[in-house]
Design a protein around this nucleic acid. Sequence first.
DNA 1: TTAAATGTGTGACATATGTCACGTTTTTTT
DNA 2: AAAAAAACGTGACATATGTCACACATTTAA
Lengths: 193, 193
Amino acid sequence: MYKFLFQKIKETIAINDDEFEFVKTLFIPKKLKRRRYLLSEGDICKYTIFVEKGLLRSFTTDEKGTEHTLQFSMEGWWAADLYSFFTEEPTQFHIEALEESEVLLLSKPSWDLLLEKVPSFERYFRILIQNNLIATQRRLIGSFSETAEEKYNNLLLQCPSIVQRVPQHMIASYIGISRETLSRIRSNSLSNL
Amino acid sequence: MYKFLFQKIKETIAINDDEFEFVKTLFIPKKLKRRRYLLSEGDICKYTIFVEKGLLRSFTTDEKGTEHTLQFSMEGWWAADLYSFFTEEPTQFHIEALEESEVLLLSKPSWDLLLEKVPSFERYFRILIQNNLIATQRRLIGSFSETAEEKYNNLLLQCPSIVQRVPQHMIASYIGISRETLSRIRSNSLSNL
DNA sequence: TTAAATGTGTGACATATGTCACGTTTTTTT
DNA sequence: AAAAAAACGTGACATATGTCACACATTTAA
């Protein structure tokens, strides 16, 4: 249950077995069925979520009812609304399980305790967030400069596994195009083989 | 010259005067004329840049020659291509001074030394980057869900000072619309007064 | 003070993408 | 196995925004 967590942490910082045993005590393991929500609009985001198994999606719904996907989080990744988590303001996001999933929940008090007792986690989270920022900046620039087809092809190159595991209309909402446009792009690229 | 730096640091972490004197020695002060570049496409981003005075812009140029503005950095803000800074890969960004500016440069070795000697800076940078991530995520969702007019009006609400200090076509490239569209939005909202 | 460079406004037109509607296929649930 | 729900494909059409072109205004530099 803590396999990916341990592995991912060790990729960026050095922690010993004792420390990891302590880390373990801070997380709440949870199993989720498909389509279950971990966070809904209006909630306060009480946990940062680490995915050990399965796949989560973070998204918002605008006034017209259209969904916009911020992130897919698969094994070894995190999910949360950081703004709501730190300010304790209500969130605008939903986080749902797209597959049967196993997650580890880290509450705010546990987060604080973690940084206090194992200061090197400050570095771990900084790097994690930094990589997320770099990726999000790229998506933003891409959303300005790329055509719908380029957006899809780039996603295929960069995250083929996401495209395989997720329904098309959610892929569309992740790259910021309509599901119909994505459907047409896919049928066109088939005829170009 | 270090006024904003000191102030901004104290907003998030506690550091004493001795530590600040040490911090000072790590930064390279630099004055910049208008339109001077601190970073050009293909360079390796050698410094993270803190703005004491003036205004910087980070942007990319796509294959068609269209500019896309990632960020404006005014007094008290940072600028850099974090990806290039940490990987030492060539950058795709340009960073230019939009006004006569005074900046403080922090090289990679100095950055490393800073975190080693004053570990609380890990926290400072984590929070800095985290706030940037939250803002960038909002821009991304906005780029999916808002009309050109909404994008402009929201920017007016959130960063009126940027809109005042920066040429319109750069504002357009920041919210991801053409300069002509922005020009029409502005003339329309005038007639609605 | 003049010339050059930069920035802005606006008309005419093109087009990529969204929207709506409906049918079919696939998956999930009972 | 049947029914319900979710997902996908596709035609017809609408439209917001981009593109191109050129005039005018403003700022900067010579």
